[in-house]
């Protein structure tokens, strides 16, 4: 048993490297070196029960890889994922892993690819129930599927249809129903609304909030959309090139961002209120993650970069705002006010 304020999920020094070298023969012929993509390179975070942590960042920052590491689709190169006090990598038997596994589920980005096109909705939603043998009586399973479909705003009659008969938003509801069917406590949501239209996105975000309240769910939410993250999260982690640069309460991050990259991201959001807020032009692009800059990976785009930033990787420290920030400028107090 874990203490009451212990995190439900924690990542400890989580890293995942991919070998993206060309085939052996080509390397031997051209003398090309081995190439390693450090998609995630030492990430630490904790999620408390009932809380939503969002990871936000631009493409290639490693946020989706973190999601896949947490649910076990990838094995970490270093570090570990701890679920309710249990180190996932240390689970010896398949049965033990399965018992933990049914306590978390995942919702994917593409509602057109995440449902097997040849299965009927009823079978899709019931899959976790059948896989973990949570129920055996077909009538009971059927009743549970109907209940789940109603819970996500579909009708029990939809059970006998195929995924292609539904719109993107409805398919995402089916995905959510499937994720909920094993009564999980923790959901990993990888860009669940980025393929949807805004009005449908609002429906899904509202549904996710309602379900969280009703079922006491804990979310790890992956998104590139800061406005969505602002709406859904309790805490936010900003990622850049495989590392967390700033983690903190949603209010702190949005009101008093510390890391220059967080500030840059916030500045880049289109101004929907049309307040005439002046915008700092953002320079540069994300570098190639196979060959990241030395020192702080953000230094080539950072207006505050010094020699130290170009040499030394900054460590995460708690800033005066309460957020955890990995930045030499913040640590040295060189940060200009905003």
């Amino acid at each position: 048993m874990s203490p009451p304020d212990a995190p439900l999920v924690a990542a400890r020094g989580l890293a995942r490297h991919f070998d993206v070298s060309r085939p052996l023969l080509n390397r031997l012929l051209d003398g090309a070196p081995r190439q390693v993509l450090r998609a995630v390179d030492g990430v630490d975070f904790e999620i408390r029960k009932g809380e939503t942590l969002s990871l936000v960042g631009e493409s290639g920052c490693g946020k989706s890889t973190v999601a896949r590491l947490v649910v076990g689709l990838y094995r970490p190169t270093r570090g570990s994922v701890v679920f309710d006090g249990t180190d996932m990598a240390a689970l010896a038997s398949r049965a033990a892993a399965e018992r933990v596994r049914r306590r978390f589920q995942m919702i994917f980005q593409d509602p057109y690819a995440s449902l097997n096109p040849r299965w009927r909705v009823g079978r899709i939603v019931a899959e976790p129930i059948v896989a973990h043998a949570l129920m055996s009586d077909p009538a009971a399973i059927r009743a549970r599927v109907d209940e789940l479909l109603l819970q996500v705003g579909l009708s029990p009659a939809d059970r006998d249809k195929f995924p292609h008969e539904f719109s993107g938003g409805q398919r995402q509801r089916i995905s959510i129903a499937r994720a909920l069917s094993s009564n999980p406590e923790f959901l990993v949501c990888d860009e669940p609304t980025s393929a949807l239209d805004v009005s449908v996105q609002a429906q899904i975000l509202n549904l996710m909030k309602d379900l969280q309240r009703a079922l006491g769910l804990t979310y790890l939410f992956i998104s590139h959309n800061l406005a969505v993250v602002h709406y859904i999260s309790d805490r936010v982690g900003v990622m850049y090139l495989g590392r967390l640069v700033e983690t903190g309460d949603v209010k702190t991050i949005f009101a008093r961002p510390q890391h220059p990259y967080t500030r840059m991201l916030l500045d880049a959001i289109p101004d929907l209120e049309m307040s005439g807020r002046p915008r700092t032009p953002v320079a540069g692009e994300v570098p190639n993650p196979i060959d990241p800059p030395p020192g702080c990976a953000f230094h080539p785009r950072c207006p505050l970069a010094t020699d130290r930033c170009r040499r030394e990787v900054p460590l995460a420290r708690v800033a005066p705002t309460g957020a955890t920030v990995a930045c030499h400028a913040v640590e040295e107090g060189r940060l200009p006010p905003r």
């Binding site: 896949r68 649910v71 892993a97 596994r101 980005q109 995440s114 449902l115 097997n116 096109p117 976790p128």
Partner: peptide
């Protein structure tokens, strides 16, 4: 595809 990954997550 994500439906296969979903099945893997389900276990």
């Amino acid at each position: 595809k994500e439906y296969v990954q979903a099945a893997r997550v389900i276990g």
